[in-house]
Design a protein around this nucleic acid. Structure first.
Lengths: 341, 341
DNA sequence: TGGTTTTGTGTTATCGCTAACTCAGCTAGG
DNA sequence: CCTAGCTGAGTTAGCGATAACACAAAACCA
């Protein structure tokens, strides 16, 4: 099968231990032998087996990263950030994609444990992820939650200011004269969705606008189509909203599709704002008014927190990092249109 | 540290072998013992150690996937597709991000070998990846190239029709009356870039338009800024192009930025087409005329090819899959504008 | 009822590597 | 010249799991 250490040893005419010493750069090897071993390694294309090494050293040099959807531009950037920091620290990132499915999340967490990752970064599916965290605790695997928290969780966490961000977005719409503002949210299972809904309510309350439940509809996080359907439902209300706040950058795609389908122009006929930017899209065509979260930084900081913990440099039980978002006003909210009554 | 099989065995009052049998669903375990062992497993939160299992079974249940940039929407979809198929087949995907850096690619390939992945999916950085493939060969690790090939490579490969696709895009522009068509490409190190340039030349030749080297500029694959600079250089030519063909969906972002910076409207002042769609952007705002490759399918098919090989179902040395792209005409090419002279 | 098969469980060796120990041979100091 | 100390190797054991074998006890059949 694959080239093993013993083959290298035989070829170089030494013992396996000596090969190991060469690989691990032990100083106690004569130059002559080192050369022979290195030549044999290069010749055979030998690559050490980490399973074996990990088994004995109890270290694999791997971190796990579990996200609900790699195709979501937010998480894509989280991945890139995490990968970058991990690589510099000599770690690997094993990425898993749960498709927001709690069973898969469970499966992947076990898989990561099984692979003996040294730590885990997790953007949990939602509240029901709680039992999954227990397994991590029992096995003493350090982990950091990203983006979303879970009721009662008191470990490391990197998140954005969803309440404040949502409130600011909605206040922006209110400032432009909108009174009927719809919201396309996702399941309250997810903490960011709850927080953004809370921010939405706060903004309304602060402006003295009554909260109308019929203006808030839920869509699936991974399926653009459901946001599309929710938006159509909002637009078909007897008294439809004049503006829509989308809970994230995935749902807003459905919102735009629905508006187009109804022949409504953004922002002239309906204003749109959302949480999270869409990286390439916003550079190609800066159009959406968004609360742009520093997604890559979510990844880098969370990884840093995890690495600190692995290095045993950390005492505190919990470290909470809240990253501010950038409020970016572009066309879609209609800020440059004449204000409403 | 972590819970081991022996602890489970002790707790259940059986031998380690019996625990192993329960885990592997061997039928030769009495119900009574099975119950006790399962209770102990649940109680301790035990998760088997794959390193140990992999070491003895010579199987890890993991596939490696190495891409130049996870944040590139094309590769993001490849990842999703690969992950989906792998998961269904009971495999894991370990993802690595080379940032188009040959050294990192080398490092990650060794890491994957080291992790004893059973097979590898690789979207190589470019021609210089060749020595990296040799290591894979020497270690008998099956692998499939994705999207890009390498001169002289004769193993499994899943790619798009870059020559034909590029030709079609450029012929579209020519059909709209354009004669001076610029191209922002990336290094000829990458096969798709070479092929798309070839398609561009074929289209020109077929239309009897002379090829002008000054209209073809190279940009970096990972950095939008360099495409932006290249575009500015094109626009500043004494006789600037009236249309630009971007080699991919990353570069086109720089093209758009540069056009905007020069106050040029797309498509009125300059037509733009590119290879590869930008998933969310195109749904949010269908604007770019593109050759949309079925990126997710690249991932699913490549993974399928790899799984087939792992299962030993395959005889042929090489299997080549060429996936057709979808030509999508939208606004950016100006197809609905009055034609040019 | 005796012998053969089946069933349920334990024992041993081993995957590839490295920690910890061993040891021959050389060096150096008194 | 002898011993303590260092050098550059090799040897042994074991990481956590499982394949392969071993073996009682129960089940089966003639």
């Amino acid at each position: 099968m694959r080239v093993t250490m013993r083959e290298v040893a035989t070829k170089a005419g030494v013992s396996a231990m000596t090969v190991s010493r060469v690989i691990n750069e032990s100083p106690r090897v004569s130059d002559e032998v080192r050369r022979r071993v290195e030549a044999a390694i290069a010749d055979l294309g030998y690559v050490p087996n980490r399973l074996a090494r990990g088994l004995i050293r109890q270290k694999t040099g791997a971190l796990g990263l579990i996200v609900p959807d790699v195709a979501n531009p937010f998480f894509t950037l989280v991945v890139r950030g995490a990968e970058e920091v991990a690589w510099r620290a000599g770690y690997h990132v094993i990425l898993c994609n749960t498709q927001a499915d709690i069973e898969r999340e469970r499966g992947y967490i076990e898989d990561m444990l099984s692979f003996q990752v040294e730590g885990l970064l997790l953007a949990p599916v939602g509240e029901r992820s709680r039992p999954n965290l227990r397994v991590l605790r029992k096995n003493n695997v350090p982990f950091v939650l990203i983006d979303r928290t879970i009721g009662g969780y008191d470990g490391d966490l990197v998140q954005g200011d969803s309440v404040g961000g949502a409130r600011q977005l909605v206040e922006h719409l209110i400032g432009l004269g909108h009174r009927r503002i719809g919201m396309v949210t996702e399941t309250a299972e997810v903490s960011t969705a709850r927080d953004r809904l809370e921010g939405y309510r706060q903004a309304l309350e602060h402006a003295g606008i009554a909260y109308s439940p019929e203006l808030v509809l839920e869509a699936s996080a991974t399926d653009v189509g459901s946001a599309h359907d929710a938006t159509l439902a909002l637009l078909d209300l007897p008294e439809p909203p004049t503006a829509i706040f989308s809970v994230n950058n995935i749902a807003v795609v459905g919102v735009a599709e629905a508006a187009r389908e109804r022949g409504l122009r953004i922002p002239e006929d309906i204003a749109v704002v959302c949480f999270d930017d869409i990286e390439h899209a916003s550079r190609f065509h800066p159009f959406l008014t968004v609360m742009a979260q520093p997604a890559e930084t979510f990844g880098t900081i969370a990884t840093q927190l995890l690495l600190d913990r692995l290095a045993g440099r950390i005492e505190q039980r919990r470290r909470l990092v809240v990253l501010p978002a950038d409020f970016v006003v572009r066309e879609s909210s209609g800020a440059q249109l004449p204000e409403r009554a």
